[in-house]
C-alpha cells in the first residue's frame, strides 16, 4: 500500500508556500522566477496525487499542459529579463520601479 494522499498534498502545500514566500522575499529576478517554477511544481505534485487518488488520468494531462506552458513562460520571461537587464549593473527586481506612483 502506498503512502496516503494527505502526505503528498501537505508536501505540495509546503512547497507551494516556500515558493510563494521566496518570490516575495528575494530580489534577484532569476531567483524569483525559480520560485515561480517551484510553485508550479508543487501544483503539479498535487495534480498527480489527485490523479492517483481518483484514478483519473486527467490530472496527468493537466500536468502535461502545465509543463508546456511553464516552458513557454520561462522562454518569454527570460527573454524579457535579458532585454531589461542587459545594460544594468544590478539584476534585482527592485531596480525596475518606473511605475512608482
Amino acid at each position: 500500500m502506498s503512502v496516503p494522499a494527505d502526505f503528498y498534498l501537505t508536501l505540495s502545500a509546503v512547497m507551494f508556500t516556500i515558493g510563494a514566500v521566496g518570490l516575495l522575499v528575494r530580489r534577484n529576478v532569476l531567483v524569483m522566477f525559480m520560485c515561480v517554477e517551484l510553485m508550479l511544481n508543487a501544483a503539479n505534485l498535487a495534480f498527480i496525487t489527485f490523479a492517483r487518488e481518483l484514478n483519473d488520468v486527467g490530472g496527468q494531462i493537466a500536468v502535461f499542459f502545465v509543463l508546456v506552458v511553464a516552458a513557454a513562460e520561462v522562454v518569454v520571461g527570460l527573454g524579457i529579463i535579458v532585454a531589461i537587464f542587459r545594460r544594468r549593473v544590478g539584476a534585482t527586481a527592485d531596480d525596475v520601479h518606473v511605475l512608482k506612483g
Binding site: 516575495l24 511605475l99 506612483g101
Partner: peptide, 14 residues
C-alpha cells in the same frame, strides 16, 4: 493612495 503603487513587483506579488 499613490504610495500603494510602489513600483516594486515584489510588493504587488505581496
Amino acid at each position: 493612495l499613490r504610495r500603494v503603487q510602489t513600483g516594486y513587483v515584489r510588493n504587488y506579488a505581496l
